[in-house]
């Protein structure tokens, strides 16, 4: 098992960092190979530039994100750990998708034989999404959980069809308690066990 964990939070002392640590610990104890992308820690630049945009359709132009692309091709398990801001992904994580989920890598553009976009990440068989929301579960549901959908459906479409998928969110984060946070970390571990499944 080869897991790529994309972690996004500005503060090293955040609850999101604690979630990341539980995720990593679960992967290590399952014997998985793990690569971690700490977007804030690495100072990732989320802005897709004019040069990158103009070379967008040419896979050879992926030079500035070579490592990200290599890790995306390497992994069979993709995990995102981040806070939800304005019902969506932090710009930092959204920019990771913009710059790394390239044509020829994450998806194949329509061509003469195919009318529409086809998945390019069919080697990825597991998707884990772990987040925190300031909003309540109810309000997030009313708005339609756009951030979750961007990952589970938008990016999820690019993976192996019928891949294994888990999602966990701690809602009402601003009024969380020691107990609610501990309960959520236990939930994260349970979800990770389900995501990992039986490992040979």
């Amino acid at each position: 098992m080869r897991a790529l964990v994309v972690y996004c939070h500005p503060s090293p002392h955040s609850f999101t960092a604690a979630v990341r640590d539980r995720v990593l610990a679960r992967l290590v104890s399952a014997g998985a190979e793990v690569r971690l992308h700490d977007l804030y820690g690495e100072g990732f630049d989320p802005v897709l530039t004019r040069v990158a945009w103009e070379g967008y359709l040419d896979p050879a132009q992926a030079a500035p994100v070579t490592r990200e692309v290599a890790d995306l091709r390497w992994c069979d398990t993709l995990i995102f750990v981040y806070p939800t801001w304005w019902y969506g992904l932090p710009a930092m994580l959204k920019g990771w998708l913009d710059r790394v989920m390239l044509p020829g890598v994450a998806f194949l553009m329509p061509d003469a034989r195919n009318r529409t976009i086809r998945p390019g990440l069919t080697h990825i068989t597991r998707l884990g999404v772990f987040t925190t929301c300031g909003a309540s579960r109810w309000l997030t549901w009313v708005v339609g959980a756009p951030g979750k959908r961007t990952l589970t459906r938008g990016a999820g479409f690019l993976l192996r069809p019928r891949h294994r998928r888990v999602f966990a969110a701690h809602y009402l984060m601003d009024s969380s308690t020691v107990e609610s946070r501990a309960a959520h970390l236990a939930r994260v571990e349970a979800k990770m066990d389900r995501l990992i499944g039986r490992v040979a």
Binding site: P46, W86, A91, K94, G95, L97, R149, G154, A155
Partner: peptide
């Protein structure tokens, strides 16, 4: 990728602040 370009998402992250676009009253 079914979202705003990061530069626009970041505008909402940084400028659509409590007190500017919304207020939290009793949660």
């Amino acid at each position: 990728n079914f979202g705003f370009p990061a530069i626009l998402k970041g505008y909402t992250d940084r400028v659509f602040l409590p007190g500017v676009t919304f207020r939290l009253e009793d949660g």
